[in-house]
C-alpha cells in the first residue's frame, strides 16, 4: 500500500479536482433554505415598509403607523440589508454543516488510497459539494475572517491569529496552528486525484509557520513549528519540513538557515562591495 501511495508518478503531480455528481444538487437545497430563512425573518419588517410606501398590506401582520416609527423604519434599511446578507450566509453555513456532520457519521473520514466508485470516493465527493457553496459565499463576503469561521465549523482546525484570506484550502484533514501566516494564491490540498485513484492524507501546519505566496502544500505534508515554505515552491507527498528553516524548491529540496535582519543586511552590503570591486 505504502509503495503504491508513494508512486513515483504521484510524487510531484499535485492536481486537485472533484467530479460533478447528482449530489451536487444539494446546492439548490442550500440556496432554498438560506433564502427562505432570510425572507421569513424579514417578512414582518418588509411588510411594514411596503405599507409605508404603497398603503397596501400584503401579509396580515400588525402594522405600526406613526411618523416616528416611519422614519425609524426607513432609517433601518441599510442595517437591514447588511443583516440580510449575514443571515443568508450564516444560515447556509449552519445548514450545510448539519449535512456535513451527517455525512461524516455515515462514513467516518479515513486517510488512504481509494479507487473510483468506492464508498470513500463517493462520500468525499459529497462532502466537497456540501462545502462548496457556503465557502464560496464566505469568500464573497467583505469580511476577511468569514471563511476561517466557515472552515472551523467544517472541522478544519485553525488556531488563533491565523492569516488565511486568499487561497484554496480543503475542508477537512487539515490542521493549522496559532499565529501561522499564509500568503496569496496558495493551495493546501489534503486530497489528490490521480487517474482513477483518490489519495487522502492529513496535512499538519504548526504554530507560527509561514506559507509563502504561490505555493502548493501537498497531502501528507507536516510543517513543524516556525518552519517557512518559500515562495513559488511545493512540497511532495508526505514531506516533513523542519522548524526554524526556510524550505525552497519544486519540490522542496533546499534548506536555508534563518537570519536576523542585521545579518542579512551585512551580507547584502558585502555582496554589493564585491560586485563594485569586480566592476572596477
Amino acid at each position: 500500500m505504502e509503495s503504491e501511495i508513494l508512486d513515483k508518478n504521484v510524487q510531484f503531480i499535485s492536481t486537485s479536482g472533484v467530479y460533478k455528481t447528482p449530489f451536487t444538487l444539494i446546492i439548490v437545497l442550500q440556496l432554498y433554505v438560506g433564502l427562505l430563512i432570510t425572507i421569513f425573518a424579514n417578512l414582518w419588517y418588509w411588510n411594514n415598509l411596503y405599507y409605508y410606501f404603497t398603503n397596501q398590506i400584503i401579509f396580515p401582520f400588525p402594522i405600526n403607523d406613526s411618523l416616528i416609527e416611519r422614519v425609524f423604519f426607513i432609517c433601518l434599511i441599510p442595517l437591514n440589508i447588511y443583516g440580510c446578507v449575514f443571515l443568508f450566509v450564516f444560515s447556509i453555513i449552519l445548514f450545510s454543516i448539519v449535512i456535513f456532520k451527517i455525512l461524516d457519521k455515515l462514513s467516518p473520514p479515513k486517510e488512504g488510497n481509494f479507487f473510483r466508485d468506492s464508498k470513500e470516493w463517493k462520500y468525499v465527493h459529497r462532502k466537497f459539494w456540501t462545502a462548496y457553496f457556503p465557502i464560496w459565499l464566505a469568500r464573497a463576503l467583505p469580511l476577511p475572517w468569514a471563511d476561517i469561521f466557515a472552515y472551523r465549523f467544517f472541522g478544519v482546525r485553525i488556531g488563533k491569529n491565523v492569516v488565511l484570506y486568499e487561497g484554496y484550502v480543503d475542508p477537512y484533514f487539515i490542521e493549522i496552528g496559532d499565529f501561522t501566516m499564509t500568503s496569496l494564491n496558495i493551495c493546501i490540498f489534503s486530497h489528490l486525484i490521480y487517474q482513477d485513484r483518490l489519495f487522502i492524507q492529513k496535512v499538519k501546519i504548526g504554530d507560527a509557520c509561514v506559507v509563502g505566496p504561490q505555493t502548493i502544500v501537498a497531502p501528507g505534508t507536516q510543517m513543524d513549528d516556525r518552519a517557512i515554505l518559500g515562495a513559488n515552491s511545493y512540497t511532495s507527498i508526505g514531506q516533513k519540513l523542519e522548524s526554524d528553516l526556510i524550505h525552497v524548491g519544486t519540490p522542496v529540496n533546499i534548506k536555508l538557515p534563518l537570519q536576523s535582519v542585521e545579518d542579512s543586511q551585512e551580507k547584502a552590503t558585502k555582496i554589493k562591495e564585491t560586485t563594485i570591486k569586480k566592476e572596477d
Partner: peptide
C-alpha cells in the same frame, strides 16, 4: 485524452500534450 496537468502550471502557445502525458505541478 487522459492527460494530466498539475496545479499552477502554465502552457505557453504551441504546446502539444499527447495522450496520457503528465506535467508536474508548478512547471
Amino acid at each position: 485524452d487522459g492527460a494530466l496537468i498539475g496545479a499552477k502550471c502554465v502552457l505557453l502557445p504551441g504546446t502539444v500534450v499527447k495522450k496520457k502525458a503528465k506535467l508536474g505541478a508548478h512547471s
